[in-house]
Amino acid sequence: EFILQPIHNLLMGDTKEQRILNHVLQHAEPGNAQSVLEAIDTYCEQKEWAMNVGDKKGKIVDAVIQEHQPSVLLELGAYCGYSAVRMARLLSPGARLITIEINPDCAAITQRMVDFAGV
């Protein structure tokens, strides 16, 4: 995967993360976080594997957030924003999600994903 990915990106003209974002923009409903998550899950199941938590493990994350109702949540590494959208949609009003992503391209994609999801 890591050796072939740059070749695939070159042939496709963009990165996997950008392709995931484009899929979301084309297939998800703006302002609907659940729709965004479903679009990412569908893309990763049908098109390309991606390094995200996914729906199965995501339900565990959901349960922890719902049980503890944090007022501040810190995410280290956002990748394409799946977990940020997943967690933010469950936060109480006034709660904050702080996401740190070292890769500026992934940070920009995450910001667009979060904005599109409306969270």
Rank of each mutant, 00 (worst) to 15 (best):
I102L: 09
I3L: 10
L11R: 01
T110A: 05
A117G: 09
A107G: 08
G118V: 07
P30T: 15
E17Q: 07
N22Y: 00
E1A: 01
N32T: 08
H8Q: 09
E1K: 01
Q26H: 08
Q34L: 14
T99A: 02
G118A: 13
A28V: 11
A107D: 06
N9H: 00
V114A: 09
I3T: 03
G118S: 15
R112G: 01
I109N: 06
Q18P: 14
L21R: 01
R112Q: 05
F2Y: 01
D115H: 10
P30R: 03
H23Q: 08
Q5L: 08
F116C: 13
C106Y: 00
I102N: 07
L97P: 02
L4R: 06
N22K: 04
C106G: 10
Q34E: 11
I109M: 03
E101D: 03
H27P: 15
N103K: 09
V119A: 14
N103I: 09
A108V: 11
H23D: 00
I20S: 03
E17D: 08
M113L: 07
A28S: 06
L4V: 11
Q18K: 04
S35R: 15
V114G: 06
L10M: 08
E17K: 00
R19G: 14
D105V: 06
Q111H: 06
T99N: 07
G31R: 14
I100V: 11
L97V: 15
M12K: 14
I20F: 04
N32Y: 12
I98N: 05
S35G: 12
Q34R: 15
D14V: 15
E101K: 05
A33G: 04
L4Q: 00
G118C: 04
Q26K: 07
N32I: 12
A33V: 11
S35N: 01
R19L: 08
I98T: 08
L10V: 12
E101G: 10
R112W: 12
A28G: 10
I98V: 13
M113I: 05
Q5H: 02
K16M: 07
V24E: 05
D115Y: 11
V114M: 12
E101A: 11
I3V: 13
D14H: 05
I3M: 09
T110S: 10
L21P: 00
A108T: 14
A28P: 12
G13S: 14
V119L: 09
R112L: 07
C106W: 04
H23N: 01
E29A: 03
Q111K: 14
N103Y: 02
E29K: 13
Q111R: 08
P104S: 12
I7M: 06
I20N: 03
T110P: 05
I20L: 04
D105G: 11
F116S: 15
I98F: 15
I100T: 05
L4P: 00
V119M: 12
D14N: 02
A117S: 09
A117D: 10
V114E: 14
F2I: 04
I7T: 04
A117P: 11
S35I: 11
D115A: 14
N103D: 02
F116I: 06
L10R: 01
M12I: 06
H27N: 09
R112P: 01
R19P: 14
L25V: 00
P104T: 09
N9K: 04
E1G: 06
V24L: 02
P30A: 08
V24A: 01
I20M: 05
K16R: 01
H27Y: 13
A33E: 03
Q18L: 04
I7N: 02
P104H: 14
G13V: 10
C106S: 13
D14E: 09
Q26E: 07
N32S: 01
D115N: 10
T15I: 03
A107T: 05
G31W: 13
I102M: 06
I7V: 02
Q18R: 00
M113T: 00
F2V: 10
M113R: 06
I7L: 09
D105A: 05
D105H: 08
N32D: 12
Q34H: 12
A33T: 05
V119E: 10
L10P: 00
G13A: 05
P30L: 03
Q34K: 04
M12V: 14
E17G: 09
L25M: 02
K16T: 07
V24M: 04
K16E: 01
T99S: 09
H23L: 03
D14G: 07
E1D: 03
Q111P: 08
L10Q: 00
N103H: 03
V24G: 03
P6R: 02
I109L: 02
H8D: 13
T99I: 02
M113K: 03
M113V: 01
N103S: 13
H27D: 15
S35T: 15
P30S: 13
N22I: 01
N22T: 07
A107V: 12
H8P: 06
H23Y: 04
A33S: 07
A107S: 04
L97R: 08
L11H: 01
G13C: 10
Q18E: 10
A108D: 11
P6T: 12
I3F: 02
N103T: 15
I109V: 07
D105N: 13
E17A: 10
Q111E: 04
G31E: 12
F116V: 03
E1Q: 04
C106R: 02
T99P: 13
P104L: 07
H23P: 08
T110N: 12
S35C: 11
T15S: 05
P104R: 06
V119G: 12
N9D: 00
Q26L: 06
P6S: 13
I100F: 11
E29D: 14
D14Y: 10
N9S: 03
D115E: 06
A117V: 15
G13D: 15
D115G: 09
I109F: 14
M12T: 07
T15N: 13
A33P: 14
I98L: 10
L11P: 01
E1V: 09
M12L: 09
P6L: 12
Q111L: 05
F2S: 06
I109T: 15
I100M: 07
N22D: 02
E29G: 08
E29V: 13
G118R: 15
A117T: 15
Q5E: 09
I3N: 03
I7S: 08
I102F: 06
I100S: 14
I3S: 14
Q18H: 01
A28T: 05
N22S: 00
G118D: 09
F2L: 04
I100N: 08
I102T: 08
Q5P: 00
Q26P: 02
D105E: 03
R19C: 12
N9Y: 00
H27L: 14
I98M: 14
H8R: 06
E29Q: 15
H8Y: 07
N32K: 08
D105Y: 11
F2C: 10
Q5R: 02
I102V: 04
N9I: 05
F116Y: 07
L97M: 15
A28E: 11
P104A: 06
L4M: 10
A107P: 12
H23R: 00
L21M: 04
R19S: 12
A108S: 10
D14A: 09
H8N: 07
T15A: 13
Q5K: 12
G31A: 04
I109S: 13
I102S: 11
E17V: 11
P30H: 10
C106F: 03
L25R: 00
L11V: 08
P6H: 14
I7F: 01
V114L: 11
K16N: 05
P6A: 13
Q26R: 03
G31V: 11
L21Q: 02
N9T: 03
I20T: 00
H27Q: 12
H27R: 15
I100L: 11
T15P: 04
A108G: 02
M12R: 10
E101V: 13
T110I: 07
L21V: 06
N32H: 15
Q34P: 15
E101Q: 00
F116L: 13
H8L: 08
D115V: 10
L11F: 01
R19H: 07
L25P: 02
L25Q: 00
L97Q: 05
G13R: 11
A108P: 05
L11I: 02
